[in-house]
Design a protein around this nucleic acid. Structure first.
Lengths: 241, 241
DNA sequence: TTGACATATATCCATACTGCATGTAACTTG
DNA sequence: CAAGTTACATGCAGTATGGATATATGTCAA
């Protein structure tokens, strides 16, 4: 017969410290970027790390993620999505720390408005070709090394984002509410790390119904002042049905 | 300027208790089942719950999952996959407990061999139609209620399993090493909760190359003693290339 | 021995999606 | 007004999808 589950008193075992780290993606000039911050304390002082913080009593992990996003980047209104929980031994030199990692997408304009100093400094750009398990983080032409195991975490997040491209409406969170089909194509090219065929892309995405029930609808509005023929603006609409 | 990350001493905040719960799927008579155990202690004494346990110092979460699987079901050699981390407040009446949930697939024969008493008792069968957000757990004709938030956890695991059907070789872990195409089809029908077209299914899966680099190859062997025409046995082979 | 039965397996067809080539339209800048 | 750049449309070949239909081959019962 199965032994009783959780028969031990709570508190019988020591618990790890539980933290939340955020992979905050954004996109600027057709390049996918990730928000990092300089660490001031040891360990890894002076290096770039992902924004994060410890879980407080009375918080769910989602709540912690939103609080960290608000405190560190001034972005309180974003929807967050849990990615993975990292628990490798020794991943934090200070002790036993388990990190639940969230990933979040934000249009560059919104990031600028909320935390301009972040973007001024420049953010690490993600360079990762489609069929290449390598990933480089580049800022101002030179490679950035992240502290802790955060480089591996960003790679995991990028893989998940790629997987979500085709069947989730989440990647639209990298774009402003209204966007052209070319802008959408550039987002997908940057995430996938490879070029896409343009006429085919247009046919596929014009008025496309997404699995979530949303539809990509043309608005009738046009771009202007862009030194070429204006393009129609599209937006994501929830299907009434 | 960004404030320092993790500036607080470790230990400044209280930590939740960290547990691992396992959703162990198996399949018998074309029905998808999940392994549960009767809880003997309060809270939820007498109810069925998922196998689980607390993380020990010196363990990664994967290690904990494998230890729990070994201790509670006698299955030490299975590969485990992290599903999601649950942290709703009040999900455990005893206190602040965060659960990292893993899901695992095992062929019914292997489960029988390792923990026959589990299968003798009967396991809750999962009844969930394709486009229906409802899910019922049924054992011996009547609905089973799971303790804690474990019903919601099983639903999350089923959703993930469905999502993995098309692009992962993981669902093959529900089958023995050699199997017929019909058996594979029945696995997929049980997981998806809807029938599939047979001729199309055969064309699609004969010699199919899976994303992971594995290929579904016919072995030349045939079934026998099944009161109808023998079927060819297939197996998953890693592509040398 | 023979025919009913259940499942395996093969063939065919209509439709949709993919990847790509080609051509035309419309705005901005010099 | 010409050049440049991008938007937008159409057509085509190869492949995948979803399904109907027909034939093959074993077991089992009479």
């Amino acid at each position: 017969m199965p032994s009783s589950l959780l028969a031990n008193d709570l508190g019988a075992y020591p618990s790890p410290h539980l933290a939340v780290d955020i992979v905050l993606f954004t996109m600027n000039h057709n390049v996918l970027k990730v928000v990092t911050m300089e660490r001031t304390a040891e360990p890894f002082a002076g290096q770039q790390v992902l924004p994060g913080g410890f879980v407080h009593p009375g918080e769910t992990l989602d709540t912690t993620a939103k609080r960290v996003l608000s405190e560190k980047a001034g972005l309180p209104e974003l929807s967050v999505e849990q990615l993975y929980t990292f628990s490798q031994l020794g991943r934090d030199p200070r002790g036993w720390v388990v990190s639940v990692v969230y990933f979040v997408l934000v249009p560059y304009e919104q990031l600028l408005a909320a935390a301009g100093e972040l973007a001024d400094r420049g953010l690490p750009a993600i360079e990762a070709a489609a069929n290449d398990p390598q990933m480089r983080l580049v800022e101002h032409g030179k490679e950035v090394t992240l502290g802790f195991d955060h480089a591996a975490i960003v790679w995991t997040a990028l893989s998940r984002l790629r997987g979500k491209l085709d069947w989730s409406s989440l990647p639209f969170a990298l774009l402003p509410p209204k966007f052209t089909l070319l802008e959408l194509q550039q987002v997908r090219e940057a995430v996938l790390g490879r070029p896409l065929n343009k006429p085919h892309f247009r046919k596929k995405w014009h008025n496309k119904l997404l699995p979530g029930g949303a539809r990509l609808k043309p608005t009738g509005l046009l771009t202007s002042g862009r030194r070429h023929r204006p393009a129609e603006l599209y937006q994501l609409e929830v299907e009434s049905k």
